[in-house]
Computed example of a mutant assay.
Amino acid sequence: MYRETEKQLTFSDDFFLPFGGKLNKNNRWVILADMIPWWKAEEKYSQAFKDSNKGEQAFSIRVALGSLIIKERLGLSDRETVHQITENPYLQYFIGLPSFQEEAPFHHSMMTHFRKRLGSDIINEVNEWIVMEEQKNEKDDDGDDHPTPPASPCPKSEENVNQSDTDAYDTSANKGKLLLDATCAPADIAYPTDLDLLNEAREKLEHIIDVLHEPLKGDKRKPRTYRQRARKDYLAVSKQRKVSGKKLRKAIGKQLDYIKRDLNS
């Protein structure tokens, strides 16, 4: 059985604290609770219950959805989420409790039922609502921070008009946000290994031999490099996921022999 509870507005001042005082309205959980349109989510959540007049009364949408939001935002397990809610009055207000209570509001196993009842569609839609509300608040804050200056009672000269137009252009030229990620690295940088470095050195030596022999083509015989055999020996080891130390040392020795031959030719 489910009964709708989000038709009436709730305020942080109404949350009862047995040890006195009031909740801080600027707390992030109080602000987030005001952002979320709980009644919209409740309309979809109530459809998961076949008959609202039979059976044990289910937890409200604010308890179910609020607990999942707390879990994801704080990166907690189901059990730890319940512990945090039990210890924190702001989290209890966020899930819609009328007052602070020392006992857990529900067993941690209920988190699994909350996920099944809500589903990914409702959670994704709520995330979109939160993002839209945050963007709206950011626009309002930007408008408050940059009020429109009052009109000057004196007419502007041509020089002042040109200067103001230039200032306006400079102000509006740069817009948006630049995101930088220091963890990114070019994709062509590979982790170096002895075998890879030797293979690269051998290929460069073979290229040098080709360039130096080009003017002498037809007059002098080109030195043998055994590049196809060397390439085959390299790929036979480098393509394996796990290579024993003995096989790796043998492959490195072969590449060193090929390099030595190229240097002596």
Rank of each mutant, 00 (worst) to 15 (best):
V30N: 09
V30Y: 07
V30R: 13
I31V: 15
I31D: 07
L32R: 11
A33W: 01
D34V: 00
W38G: 06
W39C: 08
A41T: 10
E42T: 08
E42W: 11
E42F: 11
K44V: 08
Y45C: 07
Y45N: 12
S46T: 10
S46Q: 15
S46R: 12
A48C: 07
F49M: 03
F49D: 02
S52T: 06
S52G: 03
N53Y: 15
Q57M: 08
Q57N: 05
Q57H: 09
A58V: 00
A58K: 14
S60A: 11
S60K: 08
R62F: 04
R62Y: 07
V63N: 04
A64S: 15
S67L: 06
L68R: 05
I69Y: 08
I69C: 04
I69L: 05
I70D: 05
I70M: 10
I70H: 00
I70K: 04
K71N: 14
R73S: 00
R73T: 07
L74I: 01
L74T: 03
G75A: 09
L76K: 11
S77G: 09
D78N: 07
D78E: 09
D78S: 09
R79E: 15
R79S: 08
E80S: 03
T81S: 03
V82W: 13
H83K: 05
H83G: 08
H83P: 00
Q84S: 14
Q84Y: 13
E87N: 14
E87V: 09
N88F: 03
L91M: 14
L91P: 00
Q92L: 12
Q92W: 14
Y93G: 08
Y93E: 07
G96H: 06
G96Q: 06
L97G: 11
P98R: 03
S99K: 14
S99M: 10
F100D: 11
F100N: 06
F100K: 12
Q101D: 07
E102A: 15
E102D: 04
E102T: 10
E103Q: 10
P105L: 15
F106K: 13
F106V: 02
H107P: 01
S109E: 14
M111D: 07
M111C: 08
T112D: 12
H113L: 11
F114C: 05
R115Q: 12
K116F: 14
R117A: 15
R117N: 11
R117P: 10
R117V: 05
L118V: 11
L118R: 03
L118P: 06
G119F: 13
I122E: 05
I123E: 13
N124I: 01
E125K: 08
E125T: 01
V126E: 09
N127G: 08
N127T: 00
V131Y: 13
M132C: 12
M132N: 14
E133I: 00
E133Q: 01
K136H: 09
K136V: 02
K136I: 04
N137D: 10
N137M: 12
N137V: 06
E138R: 02
